[in-house]
């Protein structure tokens, strides 16, 4: 099995380091970015299987980064998990519903929470990419329906 690639975007370099260590120990390939702009660049180049994205960052904040990621055809299918030290429901729901993030984790993380959520969201994506096959398949089905 090829290692899944995770990109973490957080303005706390030490936390990025901790997450890197933890995820690498669990067989993930990890890249870190310390601000929104660098994060977007890395998402394009590194093509991660999943992005961990902090909401509160100086400069371009997480919501904005999420928007940029979802606008870019190169990165829009990558699932994003928001990280937030604000536990207010408003923050979370907003980023989830409006921005298209697939999950969130509130800081500080519960033991094992991040690994669990990574796993389930990457799996869900596999299902989705499998589903994505459909478009070509569906085109064929549609063609058939239209009598071509």
């Amino acid at each position: 099995m090829i290692n899944k690639k995770i990109l973490i975007i957080d303005d706390e370099p030490e936390l990025v380091k901790a997450v890197e260590i933890r995820l690498k120990a669990n067989g993930y390939e990890v890249e870190g970015a310390y601000d929104g702009k660098a994060g977007i660049d890395k998402a394009e180049k590194f093509k991660p299987d999943l992005v961990l994205l902090d909401i509160m960052m100086p400069g371009m904040d997480g919501q904005e980064v999420l928007k940029k990621l979802k606008e870019n055809p190169e990165t829009k299918t990558i699932p994003v998990i928001m990280l937030s030290a604000k536990s207010e429901a408003g923050d979370i729901v907003k980023s989830l519903v409006d921005g298209g993030a697939c999950d969130y984790i509130v800081k500080p993380f519960f033991d094992g929470e991040m690994l669990r959520k990574l796993k389930s969201n990457i799996n869900a994506v596999e299902g989705m990419t499998a589903g994505l096959l459909l478009d070509s398949m569906e085109t064929k089905v549609r063609e058939f329906l239209n009598g071509k």
């Binding site: 589903g131 096959l133 478009d135 398949m137």
Partner: peptide, 17 residues
Amino acid sequence: SFDDKELAGLRLKKIVK
């Protein structure tokens, strides 16, 4: 196998190979 590069969006039915 399917040509994965043609994939674009998820519609109506879930299909898996």
